[in-house]
Amino acid sequence: MSLLRIRNLSVDFATTGGSFRAVDQVDMDVGPGDVQAIVGESGSGKSVSMLATMGLLPWTATVTADEMTFDGHDLRRLTPRARRRIVGKDLAMIFQEPMSSLNPCFTVGFQVKEALRIHLGLGRADRNARALELFDQVGIPAPEKRLNAFPHQLSGGMNQRVMIAIAIACRPKLLIADEPTTALDVTIQAQILDLLLRLRDETGMALILITHDMGVVAETAQRVAVHYAGQKVEEQPVGPLFASPHHPYTAALLAALPERATERRLPAIPGVVPGQFDRPRGCLFSPRCRYADDKCRTVPPPPLGPDLGFARCHYPLNTDERLAS
């Protein structure tokens, strides 16, 4: 039984130039204790799909889905009041920019305790004790002093930890981390990722990690979904994805990593992600794909089977093993 189950999720934004599809027919299954990564370049819809799950999109967005359930709740039909009881408690999110997500007018202690007061109804003393415990858990030194600090008095790494403390305050069943370490230095990044994985081991929460850093994915995730221009183009467990990607985009993305380079010149992907007005008719990756032919340019490929990583491709790569077995 999966904790989060999404079928055929699409998000359209009403813009002055017409409707823009930011997320296109995305499926997702996350079970308790899973670490699911979503990777993709900017504009691939990875954050928007998760914001849609959280119900945090502005009114210009139209969210459609065949199914969107979290822990037995139908997220599509939830009243705002019912949603507020879940979001922040069982379903929590860490946002990318800690400096702009925290309220500069309140101390970080207040912001942590706010979640405890609203969702758990703890008394003042209990809230304080729990906030101290949380700060300790996320590795903030001298928590008694830091509770009374304002966000601008803390460093980026400390603020990100405060964000994590707020997100895990009510022991969520699912934590969505949107680029939790992008703004941080590598040594701090290592600390934060260790912390998230430790929390998963301790509380059994599921983790969805949105990132563009393939290194972070390789070291933390179990399953990886690759998004491109709003679509999920491939999904595989982390090992097979790096070893034998099926979609040409995944393969090109991995080949472009400097650390995987075999020559001085890196294999680059020509062109850019399609925008609102130049969305291709067929496969969205076809204008940039080495293998594309006329079929790719005219017929959108449906997702293939699980043994081919649900790749949206007419000519998937690395299929030999499947034929052999």
Partner: peptide, 19 residues
């Protein structure tokens, strides 16, 4: 501490404390 895009590779990560 630098993450590497190699899911199989086991490495001894040195954890630095503090900032």
């Amino acid at each position: 501490a630098t993450p590497q895009a190699d899911p199989g590779g086991k490495r001894n990560r040195i954890k630095l404390e503090g900032e």
